[in-house]
Design a protein around this nucleic acid. Sequence first.
RNA 1: GCCGCGUUGGUCAAGAGGUUAAGACGCCUCCCUUUCACGGAGGAAUCACGGGUUCGAGUCCCGUACGUGGUACCA
Length: 509
Amino acid sequence: MAQKVRVRFAPSPTGGLHLGGVRTVLFNYLFAKKHGGDFIVRIEDTDQSRFVAGAEAYIFDCLKWCGLTPDESVLHGGQYAPYRQSERKAIYRQYAEQLIKDGYAYYAFDTPAELETMRELLKTKGSSSLQYDHHVRMNMNNSLRLLPEETQQLLDAATPYVIRIKISPDEFIPFTDMIRGDINFDTNAVDDKVLLKADGMPTYHLAVVVDDFLMKITHAFRGEEWLPSAPVHILLWKYLFGLDNMPEWAHLPLILKPDGNGKLSKRDGDRLGFPVYAMDWTDPVSNEITKGFKEIGFLPEAFINLLAVLGWNDGTEQEIFSEEELIEKFSIEKVHKGGAKFDFEKAKWFNHEWIKKLDVEHYAARVKEIFKSNGIAIADDHYLNKVMHLVKERCTLLPDFYTQGSFFFQAPVTIDTAAIKPKWDDRKNLFFIELVKAWQLSTLWESTDLELSFKEIAAANSLKTGELMLPLRIMLVGGKFGPGVFEIAAAIGKKATIARVEHTLSLIE
RNA sequence: GCCGCGUUGGUCAAGAGGUUAAGACGCCUCCCUUUCACGGAGGAAUCACGGGUUCGAGUCCCGUACGUGGUACCA
């Protein structure tokens, strides 16, 4: 690659940032970083009717959380600013006019009602296509059919118009996709797409080509849903800037619903009980909150990891990748062609793996917040670190630190005495009374000391330790879970241990 | 309807003409642990179908089916 690699993610600020969107960012980012290139974020806000307040800032928040920092964007600046298409409005018109001058585009004055009539007519005629194309354009109200003076008159009278690309029939548009190989499109199937809208804004088709050229984009990655309109973009490149300057294309596979069919959508997440957006998204109109991966307790490392391997695989058995490893190993050619169904169970497994190896110091603050929201204020950071080490391998989501570790900070609220009672008897009761006495006097409070004295007393009473450990556990943690009992006793200390044993003893009486 | 793209266990997937068709998630059994988890061992389960090409096809070609995307003055 002779030129410096430059890629872009070009979202529309219309709502929450979807899994698929983040993956598109990720693949762009990985490719750029691998090749020492730049990653640009361009805001494609050309549809004013779909603009949603706050969506743009939200997108950048998500990127920040994921650790995918743009080199250039509305937020990060750059020499190709502005990076918001609405602010580039004036730029696009000249290219549209240029196309008209060169005979590749034309003015169209058709009203929405007229377009509707055309489609109705096509439908009744049983036409296979309802498109505005070479079959119908000479029957429409446009500068191709009108006399030049008539067109000028309409223009002078400020008649609303759009500019459409003029697609010639019977041509083939070949191009190479980095993932899919050679693809050939028949122009007979492509319509005269609107390039410039009546409000003066460009459509995606014009804007993407113009901006990719102006911003010197070398590789353009986007979702597979764009494949059918690729010939329009290629034609635009040919007419405007030359095919030699066109970026290389890669159309990414879709992320599909886990069940049923179709693209994964926010609604599927709501329905099936898992997030689809990277972070919580609050709809500014309805105030409805849609849960995000961040908030339910995913680690960004895990989120990135699971997205990377959804539609990509390095050919080895490795599944856990750090961002550095992904940058090193990623290759666009190994991205799959087919869509992948999203599996939340596997997503959780990735998070579990990352939590097992998480840096306790780094996540202490977040975990502290989780405890706090559950009514436990943690003052001792050192103790928290210890607890996190003890329980992290049994946490799948960050809030599990609370469910798995709350008893380290406060006595269990509910105690599963039902699990003890059936096998309870006086001998066991006596054992625990004796144990409390012994521990009361003990000056040593390491888990090994506790285990030793526990076993000695059990042996002295001819009781099996196994039958006593479960009751002890339940006294200390409230249920049948958690790390080793003696480690727990050692951690919570003499006072709490004895208090909890005595409390449960009184409950069983 | 038309056009495009796709199709290896339930899911993610390795596989680039010759393999006993990897691995992971999930599920099941067992071991470890008298908790839960981790870890370990094992198990059930797959090349959509039909034709070719070839000595030989999951791999190449052609159909069919199915899926998916597009078919907007949305991106």
